[in-house]
């Protein structure tokens, strides 16, 4: 199975452990990731906060490249990228005048027809049965708190792949592979996302609440499908512990880590050894 792939800046930057994990996991499932040629940054929070036009134009350029190169589906494992791509696609599909204006701006013809998928959707495409049949190891030692955060499920007007208040797609997937996901309350609460650098206080507070709630509900790890969530919950966990004077030691996995392990991949192949909490 070939699929268009939009890694985004994070996966080619400090969250390259996520890319390692996604590539290893999907590779083991026979999914060939075809990286979009000369893709550009989606603009992220900076664009939609400072310039609403840029917030459509930047993702639109990559969407236009995908269309030019004939990709019907585009995997964007980073929810910030996928949300920006989807929001742009929705706006473009709705408004012909905008479509023409943006096509001129990005210097490529554009219809807004490429389907943008997140990591969970790729696994759903592959199918639970096929995943189960490929699994060589049960995930029964894991009691994950599946954490969706914001942009995988919101706004539901644009992203409608799961219930935005009580999403269950990660739980369904992981329990099929033997894990025992816990029920908890912070599945869709925000971790502070892109404010890590400039508003650390908020990020520490929100992330602390998330980790605490997961622990209170008996989770022995948190599973994410977002590089920013991983940064805030994993990389910043030491800061959180210092700031609140509490020891969490909560491992934070990418969804592809756990699926990969079920497929028999070693932690190191998935880049788990490069996380902050799991390694001393």
């Amino acid at each position: 199975m070939n699929i268009g792939y939009y890694p985004g800046c994070a996966l080619h930057g400090s969250s390259n452990d996520y890319e390692q994990s996604v590539r290893a996991c999907l590779g083991a499932l026979g999914v060939n990731l075809c990286e979009l040629d000369d893709w550009i940054c989606c603009g992220a929070t900076a664009a939609h906060s400072l310039n609403h036009k840029l917030a459509v134009a930047l993702p639109a350029r990559s969407l236009a490249i995908a269309e030019r190169d004939g990709y019907d589906d585009l995997l964007a494992p980073c929810p910030m990228c996928s949300a920006q791509l989807i929001k742009a696609r929705t706006a473009l599909a709705r408004d012909r005048a905008l479509r023409e204006e943006i096509a001129a701006t990005v210097e490529l013809p554009l219809e807004g027809r490429t389907e943008v998928l997140n990591l969970i959707q790729i696994f759903q495409r592959i199918g639970l049965e096929r995943l189960k049949s490929r699994a060589t190891r049960s995930l029964n030692e894991f009691k994950p708190a599946c954490y969706y955060g914001c942009l995988l499920v919101r706004p539901p007007q644009a992203l409608r792949f799961d219930d935005c208040e009580h999403p269950t797609s990660m739980e369904t997937l992981l329990s099929e592979l033997g894990a025992a996901p816990v029920e908890w309350n912070f599945k869709t609460e925000c971790c502070g996302a892109g404010l890590t650098m400039c508003n650390e206080r908020t990020v520490l507070d929100l992330s602390h609440k998330i980790i605490s709630n997961a622990a209170a509900h008996g989770a022995n790890c948190i599973v994410v499908a977002c590089p920013m969530c991983h940064v805030n919950l994993d990389m910043k966990q030491a800061d959180i512990e210092r700031h609140y004077g509490i020891r969490h030691a909560m491992k934070v996995y990418y969804l592809s880590d756990l699926v990969g392990m079920a497929l028999g991949l070693h932690e190191n192949e998935l880049g788990v050894n490069r996380h902050f909490v799991s390694t001393p």
């Binding site: 929070t45 939609h48 906060s49 955060g149 914001c150 942009l151 499920v153 919101r154 706004p155 539901p156 007007q157 935005c164 869709t188 925000c190 502070g192 996302a193 892109g194 404010l195 508003n199 908020t202 929100l206």
Partner: peptide, 18 residues
């Protein structure tokens, strides 16, 4: 500048205000 752009407000607005 405190807003984290998490979209919760948009998702739950009964009047579909973004």
């Amino acid at each position: 500048w405190e807003c984290v752009s998490c979209q919760t407000c948009t998702a739950r607005c009964p009047q579909n205000v973004d």
